[in-house]
Each structure stands twice: as C-alpha cells, then as structure tokens.
C-alpha cells in the first residue's frame, strides 16, 4: 500500500516514531506537519525522496534534544525543518513570509490557519 511504502523508506534514525506499530504524536502540531509533508508528496507537489533526503540531513545534523523534549518532539522538529527547506527550495515559502506569519501566530495576532 502506498501509505506503508512511503513510511518504510524512512529507516533507522529517520523512522517515524511508533509504538507497537501506531504512529506516535505527542501534540497536534506533530500530526499536522506530518500530514502536510505526506500530503504534498502524495499529490505530487514534490517527490518523496526530495523530502526524505532533507530529513536524513536534518537528523544527521540534529541539535541535541532540549531537556524534557520527547523523542517525537525532537523528530518532528527535524521533520519541520526539512519541510521548510524543501518548500523554500521549491520557491513557495520565503524566509520573510514564514517569519512574519510565525510571529503572527506566536503573538496571538492570528489564531486560525485560514
């Protein structure tokens, strides 16, 4: 099945966190960013390997976990960084837009994604 195959290309340190087979998300942002990346690959906006290669690079150059960070948090932080880089590479996300929009959410100026 496609769902299966996609995630099986992620092995070792890049394997998605699971517990007894089930995906582990510690908070909603992790499942959102998971869904965004997998969804964009499924609709062909980028090739899965383009994302995977960036994820491998993020995991390899990983900043150490902050104290109290769960393994899923560390993993999806890397996942998010890989996705950002790929989206910048594709020219759909500029540093400026991303920084500005992030600030709007962080400050509470914006609450919803649309």
């Amino acid at each position: 099945m496609p769902a299966d195959r996609t995630l099986r290309t992620l092995t070792g340190d890049t394997a998605v966190p699971r517990k007894n087979g089930e995906l582990v998300f510690d908070s909603p942002w992790q499942s959102r960013v998971f869904g965004i990346a997998v969804g964009l690959a499924e609709r062909g906006f980028f090739q899965w390997d383009e994302f995977r290669d960036r994820l491998i690079a993020e995991v390899a150059g990983a900043a150490p976990a902050a104290s109290g960070e769960s393994s899923a948090t560390v993993y999806y932080r890397q996942w998010t960084a890989a996705l950002e880089k790929l989206l910048r590479h594709k020219g759909v996300l500029s540093d400026h837009d991303l920084a500005q929009r992030t600030e709007q959410f962080a400050s509470g100026e914006r609450d919803d994604v649309y």
Binding site: S27, V33, G39, T80, L87, A106, Y114
Partner: peptide
Amino acid sequence: PIEARVRAIESLLLERGLVSSDAIDRVV
C-alpha cells in the same frame, strides 16, 4: 515557537492552495 511555525507553514500553504485542512486530516 514550533507550534507557531507549523501553523504558519500550514497557513501559507493554504493560501497558495497547496494543501487543505481536510486533506491534511485525511492523510493523518
């Protein structure tokens, strides 16, 4: 910070018509 960042990504991609909230839900 990371929550704000992921929302920002989703929000910008929604504006560009590259994702929809429903589609993300379905994938997850």
